[in-house]
Design a protein around this nucleic acid. Structure first.
Length: 806
DNA sequence: GAGTTTGAAACT
DNA sequence: CAGTTTCAAACTC
């Protein structure tokens, strides 16, 4: 089966993952996608990059090298590229010597402490690595370090092994310290070169994430190896080798795009702790990757796994290595749901695991609820607090509908962890809010009609679908159809409900419940005509969010919030502004949010009437725009601004523009901010780092950015970030509108070139304009398979006759 | 459980 | 891009 061999490369190996060096892996990974962007400049020989890349190399090669080394006896050796060939003292660490471990642990603790306390304000906005080290820690990448690492590579033939027991940064730290002892002064030339390499390293720090994406794009699974210390390779073992591609491919691939630490953290208290730890260690880049979306899309969910692994890595490395083994077991208990037939399974992989080839029937049946949990909670239903685990037997009863939903709404903590819990063959599966599965008759579960397909999961035997193709055995076909679907709509697999990032993940977690925020909105808006948005026909209602002006619904009575309320709010808001303006007609002291309106009004001879007109025109423009709203997929993104109710200042802007479409205004604004602050996720998907205070202050060094309500936030955005641009350009002129069209430069398709955005990311840091499109999916990378088309054709032939599938 | 309603998705 | 058709979930009886 395609992909199997690839996945095999990261087969679980209980021994420390060895890291082959010296390959010029860069090129091999730079054929496409985000990796390219990280290798855009000439420092491709970056040792660290090679190190990182090497972690992704084939297992065979790794094994071969491992065989040649002393890694097996617990002594790991730092190896770098063999560029110099000079004789240099070997760098080795005996990780299994107690005193040595203690020493290393202490040093590492200091290192981490240093990181956490001194990350400077020059943190880059790049995902992951770029933000990990502040300027003050560049010493870690000192020329000596780099030079040494470079030189040390010459020893590879003798040392013959590499280590990955510590994460990359620790390797650097170690190497640096060793280098300080081993090396004397260096020539300026070396320093200069090393500085360039430093840059390469920094880029490499992004690379970890980028690689994930890249490999996801290749449909490979090496990510499991990425940057994990040796013990962390245990994570790999959480998915048994036999998993192969049976049923997990698309989902599993998606996990690689490590963007959503939040999701990870939301699933496991320990993971939360890990996140905190990682952040405390200075990894503010983590924040950059943390969406605050309340919707659990499996793509994001799974995607976060690797992040979690890295977090856990940091966390664990911060602990005493003496206790590492125990701690690993302890931590692992957090991450593991249970063993299934002796195979440990990450709690969040339950659904994936459900598709395992062996005992598939049982697993799938068990996972039915888990999958539907994902469906119901991540797509439309209030998301499950986490993918909690319940015993298989109970799940079975759930799937049979014999258990009241209220019962499985809570975490089932049965069979509390016994000392041998990891050895027991208790069959735990993901808890679910229900076991609803699809019931497709004609779509063969290969279209978005199918909830399973839309959710990015395979159908299970618990589904009632007919002629289902959405099964692991039709993996290629499924992937192909996913590709087609994504081609039609890149957001097809995105969560339908998007949370405004105003609410930090922590804020959204309340007693383990994933809270939807008041600013959550349907990504596209509904189009209800008869249901009045008060039935589950309405996706907004179903998603538990209010309708916004992005919706084209009629007679909206969405109990979660309807457009009528929105317009009322706007009107009231404007009226308040009017009153305020009139009351302070000379030199009023008005709120910041009112200043724009006031400035506008000040120029008007008859401000009251003008503003009234403005309101009318505003409402007209909203009405007028409805039919076309969200007409294009990426326009949906552009309209995220609508997820936040337009505010007073927006009205002010509108007022200034006369007939300017409010949507265009927000687009313009977003366009501006997007240009400034968009950051590309490592996956190449766009992360809208318009995230407000929840994440940005830490990430971007924006001190004390106040927590803003959504409308206030939007208002402030209008005031603070774009006034000049917006005020000056937000005119009815076609040109102005065009310039901010989402179809123009600031809205890019998902696979945008990262460096283009990254180069301007620093500006974005200053913009303070933050929105996050939550959980942009890194859905299965949709690697084209030649077989796929043939498969689907074959399937067509197989099924057309029977069901007349179109 | 069958039939109807509904609106999203897909198609033209 | 708008109109139409298809589809499956939601709903009703």
């Amino acid at each position: 089966m395609p992909g199997s061999d690839v996945y095999r490369q990261s087969d679980i190996q209980p021994k420390p993952q060895l890291m082959p060096c010296f390959q010029k892996e860069v090129q091999s990974y730079s054929s496409s996608g985000c990796i390219d962007e990280h290798l855009a400049d000439p420092f491709k020989e970056d040792n660290m990059m090679n190190s990182s890349m090497s972690s992704l190399t084939s297992h065979e090669e790794t094994t071969t090298k491992a065989d040649d080394t002393n890694a097996g006896n617990g002594k790991a050796t730092v190896l770098m590229s063999d560029q110099t060939g000079e004789e240099l003292p070997s760098v080795s660490m005996n990780f299994f010597d107690a005193s040595a471990r203690q020493k290393e642990t202490e040093r590492f603790g200091e290192f981490l402490q240093c990181l956490s306390g001194n990350v400077d304000d020059h943190v880059e906005s790049d995902i992951f690595g770029g933000t990990f080290f502040g300027e003050q820690h560049r010493e870690l990448f000192s020329p000596q370090n780099i030079e040494y690492l470079q030189a040390a590579g010459g020893q590879h033939d003798k040392l013959g092994a590499s280590f990955q027991i510590f994460p990359e940064f620790l390797q650097r730290d170690e190497a640096y310290k060793y280098s300080k002892e081993s090396l004397g002064s260096l020539s300026k030339e070396s320093v200069k070169e090393a500085d360039q390499r430093h840059r390469g390293i920094r880029r490499h720090l992004h690379f970890g994430a980028a690689i994930s994406c890249k490999h996801a794009g290749n449909g490979t699974y090496e990510t499991a190896n990425l940057c994990l210390p040796g013990r962390q390779t245990d994570f790999e073992s959480l998915v048994p080798p036999h998993v192969e591609t049976r049923g997990i491919s698309g989902i599993w691939q998606a996990r690689s795009c490590s963007q959503t630490a939040t999701l990870w953290s939301s699933f496991s208290p320990s993971a939360c702790e890990s996140v905190k730890s990682a952040q405390n260690y200075g990894n503010r880049a983590v924040s950059a990757c943390i969406p605050s979306g309340g919707d659990l899309h499996l793509n994001s969910f799974v995607r976060s796994e690797s992040v979690g692994s890295e977090f856990s890595t940091s966390k664990k490395l911060g602990s005493n290595l003496h206790q590492q083994e125990e701690k690993l077991m302890s931590d692992r208990d957090h991450y593991l749901c249970k063993e299934i037939d002796g195979n440990p399974v990450l709690s969040f992989l339950g659904d994936i695991y459900s598709h395992l080839g062996y005992e598939q029937q049982e697993s799938q049946a068990a996972a039915g609820a888990g999958s539907s949990s994902y469906q119901s909670s991540s797509i439309m239903q209030p998301p499950c607090d986490s993918l909690h685990l319940i015993p298989y037997e109970q799940q079975a009863s759930l799937c049979k509908g014999t258990m009241p939903s209220s019962e499985y709404a809570d975490i089932v903590e049965l069979n509390q962890m016994s000392p041998e819990r990891n050895r027991k063959k208790a069959k735990y599966i993901i808890k679910s809010e229900g076991c609803r599965r699809c019931n497709c008759k004609k779509s063969r579960c290969l279209k978005l009609y199918c909830e399973c397909f839309a959710a990015g999961i395979y159908c299970l035997d618990t589904c009632s679908c007919v002629n289902c193709i959405n099964k692991p055995e039709y993996e290629d076909t499924v992937l192909d159809m996913r590709q087609q679907t994504e081609a039609r709509n890149p957001l097809a697999f995105a969560p339908k409900v998007i949370n405004n990032a105003t609410n930090s993940p922590a804020n959204m977690m309340e007693e383990g419940k994933w809270m939807k925020t008041s600013s959550s909105r349907h990504k596209k808006g509904c189009n209800c005509k008869k249901s009045k948005c008060s039935k589950k026909y309405c996706e907004c209602f179903q998603g538990g969010v209010g309708c916004c002006n992005g919706c084209r619904c009629e007679g909206c009575y969405n109990p979660y919030g309807n457009k009528t309320d929105l317009y009322s709010e706007l009107s009231e808001s404007l009226e308040r502004e009017q009153l305020l303006s009139l009351a302070t007609s000379s030199k009023p002291e008005i709120s910041i949010s009112s200043q724009t309106n006031y400035r506008r009004a000040e120029r008007w001879n008859n401000p009251s009437q003008e503003q009234l007109d403005t309101l009318e025109s505003h409402n007209d423009c909203i009405k007028a725009e409805r039919p076309n709203q969200f007409s294009s997929t990426w326009e949906e993104l552009a309209d995220i601004g609508h997820l936040t109710p337009p505010s007073r200042c927006l009205l002010g802007a509108v007022a200034s523009s006369g007939s300017l479409n409010i949507r265009d205004c927000s687009k313009k604004f977003l366009g501006q901010s997007q240009q400034e602050s968009s950051v590309l996720s490592p996956s190449g998907y766009l992360n809208w780092h318009h995230s407000p205070s929840s994440l940005t202050p830490k990430l971007y060094g924006c001190e004390a950015l106040p927590e803003l309500s959504s409308d206030r936030f939007f208002c402030n955005m209008m005031e603070d970030a774009t006034p000049e641009t917006l005020k000056n350009t937000c005119t009815p002129s076609t040109e102005g509108v065009k310039s901010c069209s989402p179809n123009q430069k600031w809205v890019s398709p998902p696979k945008i070139r990262s460096h283009e955005l990254r180069s301007s990311s620093s500006q974005g840091l200053r913009s303070g304009c933050k929105f996050i499109l939550q959980d942009l999916p890194s859905f299965p990378p949709l690697t084209p398979y030649s077989k796929s088309q043939a498969a689907i054709h074959q399937n067509d032939g197989d099924h057309k006759g029977s069901n007349g599938y179109q």
